[in-house]
Design a protein around this nucleic acid. Structure first.
Lengths: 196, 196
DNA sequence: AGCCGCATGTAACTTGTTACATGATTTC
DNA sequence: GAAATCATGTAACAAGTTACATGCGGCT
């Protein structure tokens, strides 16, 4: 149950509400795990019941009240245990790649449109990661930061996010070029059949 | 249900048994979707019942009999429909990144060991992808291949696999360097506390 | 007037995981 | 003689998704 550990890891940054975590684990922002709001609220309840986190009720005037969760000693211990264990392989969950695998027998224009949309998203995400990286570095160069920062994990994951989105962008552009060229000049066999 | 479409996409390469697909969707090989054997056998049953694929029983002497599945017209139509629809966002499911996020409060040596193991895996996977790419190109240069090949989807996904694993390797090395330097020269605060 | 953000949930459902079982054959 | 490969499954469980609901406050 990596979701549980991902939440604990997120709470290393300080207390957060379910709603805060919802935003942090959203696919448009997340850089080390993703989850839906429903998953988070359910899991937070269980974790609180298990004593891994504690809830603090914050009453608000012009907003609904909220629970701010923070790590307990048991939560920190659980997370340390997680880092000590061998991680599971990690899966590819990318519908777009399935569509690309099947593009030759499918709707190439629709796939190209989806790729173009993702290209935009990746550019946004890359810009966000780089801003967060600058915020973390806070004027220092990387070596200085790595020497004096209390935590390097989030920074390392940010580096991976940056290179991941950069490669995505390059690949999406390549895919668009290839699909475009094919749309203009379809394969002989296909054209023949289509024209009959 | 992208698994269903991923299976259909895999069957574009020709008929396959559940066991064949098991190997193709294994995390050590897969480059566009992953699934466990149990998922595949269950889904193949459902797909055959739904008429998306047909099973052909192949009786064998020295091996257990097997079912070879192939696409039906309905299956091809379903897959074409999938390519025409907007793909879902796609999720990060990577325990290792959770461990890295939490590395500063956890077992840094264990995380480094896990990263080193992944580095090996990525090198193997990269070599496999590049071999498969050479096999697909079959002596032709990329432009020639892209012009005359009946399918470009699998090739495009292979390109992405290559760059993905290359970036993984570079990142893993970086993580190892950083964790190593930290192990040698821990953060003042931590050291002090640990030595008390 | 209507939508967005805050903040949380319930219920029903679909996917994915883990553990186990079978039994012959081939490779170390 | 033991392990791996081939080829398939069952059963039980955990995780993830989708649809919907609530109600106030602020923005346009």
């Amino acid at each position: 149950m990596a979701l549980r550990d991902a939440i604990l890891a997120a709470l290393l940054d300080g207390e957060a509400s379910g709603y805060d975590l919802t935003k942090a684990f959203d696919s448009s922002v997340a850089n080390f795990w993703m989850a839906t709001p429903q998953q988070l609220y359910r899991e937070l309840d269980r974790m609180a019941a298990a004593g891994l986190i504690t809830a603090r009720l914050v009453e608000q005037d012009r907003r609904p009240n909220k629970h701010l969760y923070s790590l307990t000693a048991a939560g920190r211990a659980q997370l340390a245990g997680f880092t000590a264990a061998a991680p599971k392989p990690g899966a590819i969950r990318e519908d777009l790649m399935v569509a690309i695998q099947a593009v030759d027998g499918g709707d190439a224009d629709a796939v190209a449109a989806a790729v173009a949309a993702r290209l935009q998203l990746s550019e946004t995400k890359l810009a966000n990661y780089q801003r967060r990286r600058r915020d973390l570095l806070d004027g220092r160069d990387e070596d200085t930061f790595l020497a004096e920062a209390p935590r390097v994990g989030p920074y390392l994951n940010l580096l991976r996010g940056v290179s991941f989105e950069r490669e995505n962008i390059a690949w999406f552009r390549r895919v668009l070029t290839v699909l475009d060229r094919r749309a203009g000049q379809p394969v002989p066999g296909e054209t023949g059949a289509a024209l009959l």
